[in-house]
Amino acid sequence: MDFPPDLEPWIRLGAFAGVLAALACTEALAPRRQQVIGRWRRWPGNLGLVALDTLILRILFPAAAVGVALLAEKRGWGLLAAVDLPAWAEIVIAVAVLDLVIYAQHVLFHAVPALWRVHRVHHADLECDVTTGLRFHPVEIVASMAIKFAAVAALGAPAVAVLIFEVVLNATAMWSHANIRLPERVDRVLRRVLVTPDMHRTHHSAVTCETHSNFGFNLAWWDRLFGTYRAQPAAGHDGMTIGVPQFRSPAELRLDRMLLQPLRRGDLAEKG
């Protein structure tokens, strides 16, 4: 399937901006939780990380994951190159497998103390909203891209499938962290397939057993399949505490403090 690589960054940017704007407006009009610490305290650091991450990725990996997919197609790399499947089937399989890889990566970053030090920057946000879904330390972003490159090459994922996955992952990361309220019945039905904001918000609880649950960003199947699903936080969504216990000061929301958090004390045993 022909794919124009020059369009990749524009497609991703357009989807990112549209989803971010739509969810931010929805949060302002109908928030799920009333935030104690508002956007003006949190968003400069969170969006500063987004800008820094984007710059670093474009410098280190100018071709992005789509470029790896195009190279794999050209060289005949990967499992999908060894089987004869319709294009639509390859796309569905590739998107699902890549989503499983991201789930496994997320579990790994919680399980290994050195990786948790990097990943806890994401969890140290004192509220949970659309920008929390974009708040990742540059070291984690680079590591995640390297894992994604390896998965794309090993699978032989079609370039169009990788683009779809990248757009969907970015959109669902913002969606699953959004501070929006869904009708209970809609949430209950939707989370049978997709991760909902209420489902993922539990993952941002300061309570350890809740932090280590609901790892998915997109498909809700993996948490149920691997036993990491938790329906609701024990304190309820209005009463739960969000964040990491050792980084409770609003000063930790500054960009410079977030970048240095992995170098500071704290491990899995200290989390709640």
Rank of each mutant, 00 (worst) to 15 (best):
residue 233 P to R: 07
residue 131 T to K: 11
residue 109 F to D: 05
residue 234 A to V: 13
residue 165 F to Y: 07
residue 66 V to W: 12
residue 216 G to D: 14
residue 181 R to N: 08
residue 174 M to Q: 14
residue 7 L to H: 12
residue 152 V to I: 07
residue 97 V to E: 04
residue 83 V to C: 00
residue 196 T to K: 00
residue 134 L to C: 07
residue 236 G to V: 05
residue 95 V to A: 11
residue 11 I to M: 06
residue 125 D to M: 06
residue 173 A to L: 01
residue 218 N to S: 15
residue 224 R to A: 08
residue 223 D to G: 15
residue 21 A to N: 11
residue 42 R to W: 13
residue 147 I to S: 05
residue 265 R to I: 05
residue 238 D to Q: 15
residue 244 V to N: 05
residue 175 W to P: 03
residue 230 R to S: 14
residue 111 A to Q: 06
residue 62 P to W: 14
residue 119 H to C: 06
residue 21 A to L: 03
residue 61 F to M: 09
residue 110 H to Q: 12
residue 247 F to I: 00
residue 264 R to C: 00
residue 195 V to F: 02
residue 170 N to W: 06
residue 246 Q to F: 06
residue 109 F to H: 04
residue 1 M to P: 04
residue 176 S to C: 13
residue 11 I to T: 02
residue 183 P to Q: 00
residue 187 D to F: 12
residue 25 C to I: 15
residue 105 Q to T: 12
residue 70 L to D: 00
residue 136 F to T: 04
residue 151 A to H: 11
residue 98 L to T: 05
residue 142 V to I: 13
residue 32 R to F: 10
residue 198 D to P: 00
residue 206 A to R: 08
residue 75 R to P: 03
residue 9 P to D: 09
residue 26 T to S: 12
residue 174 M to R: 12
residue 262 P to L: 12
residue 32 R to D: 10
residue 272 G to T: 06
residue 109 F to E: 06
residue 175 W to A: 14
residue 34 Q to A: 08
residue 118 V to A: 06
residue 32 R to A: 04
residue 179 N to I: 12
residue 6 D to A: 15
residue 77 W to N: 09
residue 164 I to G: 10
residue 84 D to S: 13
residue 29 L to E: 10
residue 112 V to I: 14
residue 195 V to S: 03
residue 231 A to Y: 06
residue 102 I to N: 09
residue 245 P to S: 03
residue 236 G to K: 04
residue 52 L to A: 08
residue 146 A to L: 15
residue 243 G to C: 05
residue 266 G to Y: 09
residue 71 L to K: 11
residue 229 Y to H: 15
residue 140 E to P: 02
residue 221 W to P: 09
residue 195 V to Q: 00
residue 100 L to G: 14
residue 155 L to C: 07
residue 70 L to C: 00
residue 122 H to W: 07
residue 265 R to F: 09
residue 111 A to I: 05
residue 220 A to S: 13
residue 59 I to P: 01
residue 233 P to L: 10
residue 258 M to W: 05
residue 153 A to P: 06
residue 75 R to Q: 14
residue 77 W to I: 02
residue 188 R to A: 04
residue 150 A to P: 00
residue 191 R to T: 07
residue 259 L to V: 03
residue 213 S to M: 00
residue 258 M to C: 09
residue 207 V to I: 10
residue 23 L to N: 13
residue 264 R to A: 05
residue 129 D to G: 06
residue 50 V to H: 14
residue 93 I to R: 08
residue 232 Q to P: 07
residue 26 T to H: 09
residue 21 A to S: 11
residue 267 D to R: 10
residue 24 A to R: 13
residue 88 W to T: 03
residue 23 L to Y: 01
residue 140 E to H: 08
residue 60 L to I: 10
residue 137 H to M: 14
residue 165 F to Q: 02
residue 257 R to M: 02
residue 255 L to K: 03
residue 134 L to N: 02
residue 126 L to D: 03
residue 54 T to A: 15
residue 34 Q to E: 15
residue 32 R to I: 09
residue 206 A to Y: 03
residue 104 A to T: 14
residue 151 A to N: 08
residue 46 N to R: 02
residue 269 A to P: 00
residue 81 A to Y: 01
residue 40 W to T: 11
residue 191 R to A: 05
residue 66 V to F: 03
residue 216 G to Y: 06
